[in-house]
Nucleic acid binder design. Structure first.
Lengths: 207, 207
DNA sequence: GGAGAAAATAACCAATTAGTTACTTTTGGA
DNA sequence: TCCAAAAGTAACTAATTGGTTATTTTCTCC
């Protein structure tokens, strides 16, 4: 049972990671404080450093963990034996489900986007390239072959728009709610938004 | 000429503001350093404080200035005497022009969105509510009245989508370029994107 | 041209920050 | 039972940070 030895260390590590995710998602890399993370996790700062080496090391670990959740979720995008239109609706709904369940993912991605090309090199993360993107494109292609979608519909831009529409709903929800004077966090609002996005995309694709 | 007195002070103020915008847009409120801003502006830190009171005061001043640029630009959204379809194309193109010319605006808005409800209270800014939003909605309504657009097209969601599609192109351009392995900063790419967005929106609105 | 106020400077301060060191406690296997 | 290694603690450090003070320079108006 060599693996089980000092299991408590692993628990501490997980606890730090969990708390750190909240802090980094909330305040970003520069806004988050190492001492605060250690305190919130009820762990000595020393342990944080022995596990992750530095603030940056901890941040990267959080980022990897966050991205992994998306990778694991991607299987839900794929449903066999449904028509391309249903497939697109499923992609939108699945994206909405993931994004609403993972607000930290949304925020971490936004921070990353803003801090890009700075301080922290994240080579391994730059090859994110979710496989589901290629899947979406396939669905459009399949629809074209079946004559359900226009042959001249732009596949690249459509996939890009679909992603943007889903993501930006969650990333701008607060600013937009204020700007448009309409609370968009309500459940029925979220669902109606997902439907609308599917409608727009499908209408564009249709002949 | 009492106003002209000590004009140099005003020049210093502008210089600080200009440099601070670059720093805050680049690194955000927490990432930017007061000393660096003062150094870059070739100005003594003391002057920065006598003009703006605090780091927060300076940040708010930059934010106000940035937002004002949008307010001034909004007139370009409005063109009299064109049909609703041309109007929507103009709105998209104008948004693209503004956003590509004001990368700092894009970044400041992203930082604001992430820091929202934190530390810095910005009451006066929360009532941003660009009047052009109402104008967009009017154009859709006008199209409906003329029978060019579907009567049951969702006005709110469409305005929201149009904004999101335009904004997210510029806010995610780097992440997305990497993810989709396609450099989207190139000029012809930007133009084709604007056209695509108009197409999607118009196709949704058409009967 | 000199008086007085505003603008500008440099050196300083107190608080906070990421990161470390020297030390004690716990653990699992022999 | 004992011991070596790992886990954990608390106090410390050096650097950085936003912000200030005491002082000198510059400018406008009489």
């Amino acid at each position: 049972m060599a693996e089980k030895r000092y299991k408590k260390s692993e628990i501490t590590r997980e606890k730090i990671l969990e708390v750190a995710e909240e802090h980094f998602a909330e305040k970003g890399f520069f806004g988050a404080r190492v001492d605060e993370i250690a305190d919130s996790a009820d762990v000595n700062k020393r342990m944080l450093y022995s596990h992750f080496g530095s603030k940056e090391g901890l941040y990267t670990a959080v980022l990897v963990k966050t991205y992994k959740r998306l990778a694991e979720f991607e299987k839900h995008f794929i449903i066999e034996g449904i028509d391309p239109i249903a497939s697109i609706r499923n992609i939108v709904l699945t994206s909405f489900r993931f994004l609403s369940q993972n607000p930290n993912f949304v925020r971490m991605l936004l921070w990353e986007n803003l801090n890009m090309a700075k301080s922290v090199p994240r080579d391994e993360l730059s090859r994110l390239k979710a496989p589901s993107l290629e899947y979406m494109r396939e669905q459009i292609r399949r629809g074209k072959e079946q004559g359900i979608f226009r042959a001249d519909a732009d596949e690249f831009h459509t996939v890009f728009s679909l992603m943007n529409l889903c993501f930006s709903y969650f990333s701008n929800i607060h600013t937009m709610s204020a700007m448009l004077s309409r609370d968009m966090t309500a459940d029925e609002e979220v669902i109606s938004r997902a439907e609308y996005i599917s409608d727009v995309i499908i209408k564009y694709l249709e002949p």
